[in-house]
Design a binder for these strands. Sequence first.
DNA 1: GACAAAAATGAACTATATTCATATTTCGTG
DNA 2: CACGAAATATGAATATAGTTCATTTTTGTC
Lengths: 201, 201
Amino acid sequence: MEEKMGRRERKKMQSRKAILDAAVEQFSQKGFKETSVADIMNAADLGIGTFYNYFQSKEEILVQLIQQMVTEVAEALRELKAANRPADELLEAGCRITACFLDKNRYVLPLFISAAEHSGLPEGSDKQPKVASPGFKGLYERILREGQERGEIRQDVPPELIAEMFHSIYQAAALSKLAISFQENVEMKTRLILDGIRVRK
Amino acid sequence: MEEKMGRRERKKMQSRKAILDAAVEQFSQKGFKETSVADIMNAADLGIGTFYNYFQSKEEILVQLIQQMVTEVAEALRELKAANRPADELLEAGCRITACFLDKNRYVLPLFISAAEHSGLPEGSDKQPKVASPGFKGLYERILREGQERGEIRQDVPPELIAEMFHSIYQAAALSKLAISFQENVEMKTRLILDGIRVRK
DNA sequence: GACAAAAATGAACTATATTCATATTTCGTG
DNA sequence: CACGAAATATGAATATAGTTCATTTTTGTC
């Protein structure tokens, strides 16, 4: 890989990072819609026009932020999966990892939610950004499928469906107004699902 | 109740309905964000300014639309609940009613989703419209609680949590890209949860 | 130091939500 | 019926924010 990097590229990375950081800060504080591109660029101490040298639109930066976070968590999950543990254990651990990540990075919750917004666009719309979930959902799906192959998970539940369910649990927990913590919320639900899909001995 | 209504009020209702209908049509077709107030009012054959005699903002009309739909479904559920059937049966029927309603009213799905958008706003924001869910979630919660009292539902699962879970299932199904129908999607997940929370005999 | 490529910039452009002063319609009253 | 007041309708004007672009500034090379 390229380890060398001219001053130019380094500077460009710096600006990019400054914009991303400022965006996280502003989005977390005021929400996506209430944050203007001008807000972001002021916080980043850069001219407004500069924004469009790095991102195609205000929406794109949100998508990239989410993408980045999902990748980070998915990476941790993938490592765990390599250890070849039974599916239910993996899923429970996965939920713990995710919850832990979100707990440490409180600011992502509002972003996570803002992402849902874009799904409101009608099917064909070319503006529709393909948001991050495949990374997550695909991984969960594979874990479940392999669990089925090993006879740990019931055969009569479609993995895509359960994966979707796990995903929606995170989404819902992020929005939750309940008194319990994100972690508790997600763990209880996860265990419930696992009880439902585990092959009973 | 007032059954009498002057021509004036009748006309006002007419305009209101025209705007709501036009909004549903336009939102369903182009999505919330892509629909302008002008689009709505053109479709309703009314002046643009008139919109603001009926709704405070473009967001408010979305909230009212959702509110209206949720109320409609919740009403059907409430009737069913009066029949005093066991909780799991009620919940399964509830899911069927909701799925059926959404199937008949395809246009609400995009709206349903657009509603999530507003949850992205930070907590304190006075702009945050309190969206519809309480009607739904509250009802599910009560059904679950009564099921617990009758010993049909496990005591160790907080009803608020399960209610939230059901809610998120609908949300997710609306967004789902899976091949199966909304109805199938929701029914499978519902049965899974029910299996998890029913008291085993 | 001079030239070219890359990056930064903010004024100008565009689109759209919202306001508002005015016009039109409705309806009770003399 | 006529009149005035209250309700409703209206679209031009305003304000805001995303995006473009011609220009300037910075960076790297010879």
